[in-house]
């Protein structure tokens, strides 16, 4: 029902702002081989905003995303969007994993990677046609990678590769976008291209979550923040969540007295 609604809005035009419900995470816990990774997470993720997930190494940032999508087994918890369980909205989620998980030697070209983004909505037994390839071309143009479309992905730099995966997410036309450490090891140009695009998508009303490690750009990039250290330290608008106290809670003494730009007292 809700899915239908989202799809319709999507089909008419992606430029008009859509009405997404927030994502509700209730009591989410995930463990790996008996060791708890995240515990009892309760939070709300707003549409039309970019939400950053920060926290020290091993805080469970990636696990939170995977737990929300149920790519890992949950010990407890539900994730809903409006009336619907997130599972029924999967085709509407574009997920870009950490680049290190990708096989760069795979015989696949840039445009073929982006084409994968059209598969969820194509479904079984339907082949990509002109419409899908057009979507690929548009998406590649948006990330300024058109000239590389025929290249094998191993020939790209880290930043270029990340732009390709962002293009894949664009081609998917998803309303929910999850990115895991998209800015690690990429050049400034790529970073700017990506963040500008994400802001554009946010203004269209999409829901965007980003696992992030570099505290310096937090204020610049995010509207909302989830601060995590196995348990939820804080979540909410940057102005309320990005405080010295919360950072100290999450990072403990490792933070020392480093002053972070934009952090509120």
């Amino acid at each position: 029902m809700m899915n239908q609604h989202v799809m319709e809005v999507d089909d008419v035009s992606t430029s008009t702002s859509m009405q997404l419900e927030p994502i509700q995470v209730n009591n989410l816990s995930v463990s790996y081989q008996g060791k708890p990774a995240i515990q009892h997470i309760n939070l709300t993720v707003q549409p039309g905003a970019i939400t950053g997930i920060i926290g020290p190494n091993g805080a469970g940032k990636s696990t939170l995303l995977k737990g929300i999508m149920e790519l890992v087994k949950r010990d407890s918890g539900q994730v809903t969007m409006g009336e619907q369980d997130i599972k029924s909205l999967r085709k509407n989620i574009a997920y870009v994993e950490q680049r290190s998980a990708i096989d760069l030697t795979f015989p696949i070209t840039v445009e073929e990677v982006v084409l994968l983004g059209t598969y969820p909505k194509l479904g079984l037994f339907r082949r990509p046609r002109k419409k899908e390839w057009q979507k690929v071309a548009e998406s590649l143009e948006k990330v300024q990678m058109t000239e590389f479309s025929k290249r094998q992905i191993g020939e790209l730099s880290g930043g270029q590769l990340q732009r390709v995966f962002i293009a894949r997410a664009l081609a998917q036309d998803a309303d929910i976008i999850f990115l895991d450490e998209p800015f690690v090891g990429i050049d400034m140009t790529s970073e700017k291209v990506i963040i500008d695009l994400l802001k554009e998508l946010k203004n269209m009303g999409k829901l965007i979550m980003i696992v992030h490690h570099d505290l310096h750009k937090v204020v610049e990039y995010f509207d909302e923040l989830i601060i995590l250290n196995r348990e939820l330290v804080a979540s909410g608008p940057i102005s309320q969540s990005f405080t010295t106290e919360n950072m100290r809670k999450a990072y403990g003494s490792t933070m020392g007295d480093i002053v972070i730009k934009g952090v509120s007292d």
Partner: peptide
């Protein structure tokens, strides 16, 4: 299609269901 996407990026494939 499914063989390609699940070979290249099984996590993305699982994420979209």
């Amino acid at each position: 299609k499914e063989l390609v996407v699940s070979s290249f990026d099984p996590t993305m494939a699982a994420a979209y269901g």
